[in-house]
Design a protein around this nucleic acid. Sequence first.
DNA 1: TTGCTGCCTTGATCTGCATCAAGGCAGGTT
DNA 2: AACCTGCCTTGATGCAGATCAAGGCAGCAA
Lengths: 250, 250
Amino acid sequence: MTHLRVRPLIVESVRPSEPCAACEARPFSVCNAIDQRDIERLAALAVSLSVDAGRTFIEEGDPAEHFFNVTAGTAKLFKLLPDGRRQITGFASMGTFLGLAVSSTYAFGAEAVEPMRICRFSRPKLRALLDDFPAMEKRLLEVASNELVAAQEQMLLLGRKTARERLASFLVTRGVCAGNGAPACGHRAAEKVTLPMTRSDIADYLGLTIETVSRTLTRFKSERLIDIPNAADILIRDHAALRSLATGLH
Amino acid sequence: MTHLRVRPLIVESVRPSEPCAACEARPFSVCNAIDQRDIERLAALAVSLSVDAGRTFIEEGDPAEHFFNVTAGTAKLFKLLPDGRRQITGFASMGTFLGLAVSSTYAFGAEAVEPMRICRFSRPKLRALLDDFPAMEKRLLEVASNELVAAQEQMLLLGRKTARERLASFLVTRGVCAGNGAPACGHRAAEKVTLPMTRSDIADYLGLTIETVSRTLTRFKSERLIDIPNAADILIRDHAALRSLATGLH
DNA sequence: TTGCTGCCTTGATCTGCATCAAGGCAGGTT
DNA sequence: AACCTGCCTTGATGCAGATCAAGGCAGCAA
């Protein structure tokens, strides 16, 4: 609290530092529904931004003026209760499209858990573009459908799984789909799972407390299911056991 | 178990008893994205079916060969764990579109909680139709987006709300949006909330047990928040108190 | 170096809801 | 009427995970 923040909270560069055509995230995002010769129209709408770790770039309840596409880093998406209880509804990494909602306000907040780059689009302008590119609209529907399936899986976890099952599910899902910043989701089980988020984030994602998350991971370690070389990295030692725990088998 | 079931489990009538043009559910469903002069093409694909109460008409994990549209009655959508634990992820009533998923198998099961009428569409045929009607694809994206928002709200409920808050949220949401088979969702608070599902369904929807649901409703009654003339009907006596409970205020 | 801060771990205790158990009631069958 | 059966309610007890409390450790500023 000893000095004023003089830097803008979000560093803007209206011209994307690298245009959509060369975007590393494009293969993983809805943008790849637009082919090479039309990509300029998309690039004209995109505003590339840096977001510092810890920065909230979507505030729940604010007017929803933009869509976002994550090009690097990780964000947590969350909803709050008035007394501060928090539910993290998901993590967004490279390629994730944010802001799908009919409502005029954001239904959730978003905060960077590590330094991020995001692409920002004006809602009305992107909507207009979508009218010309039904292929992209189709991709968005696919993305939304997949997220719905994931959301239902998460409801099962939150409503009916034990703490051990929740952590096992979390590690298995992360291991398969979000390993080490390689979001290609190659469906190969990773040896090492990197967790850019804190224990508190994991707790709020799984509907537990930070203490339960810590204790459960420690117990997994003593059971030789995992190793914890440091808090941010988990080594999977017994994939089969974790997977069967995750699906509710004992 | 004393006699064989001779009736087919689902009564089919390939010609819809009433064509799409006259469908009561159309104003509430994605079908209204197709205008009057093209509606025949949709009608040609639709197969209208009756589903008995208690009948499972979507089996989780089965090949996803159809889309469904609910035209009357209510279904519960659910996911199961191998040991029988169940999470109900939502209830589908008139106008609800079911089966949105990229995967080739259904991600959830569906069972009628009261007698239903549903419209069934072959997946590949409806997909082909969608290519000709981007307006309907757009509507589907809207529907999916709204369901995502609802799913996130449900995650907050399951992960962070107390039993009292869950029941209050349930009653308030039902009161506003699903009152008495009038799914117009007129955003007017209903006096009476009709619950076609059992206490066990409510418990599996809210991540609680049947006993906790019963006890909590009884307590609401003793606190003059509601009346329970019979198990299926709840009279809301103090909307404001329920709403503030639902949002986590005490 | 010292001290501070944020994050994580571990232990002791508490509690909200689950579990176990029993009984009530409405609707249907014999 | 007598008897199921399915569903709901109510009471007694138990426990998984929350809460309370304390200490460890890495990174960083003074």
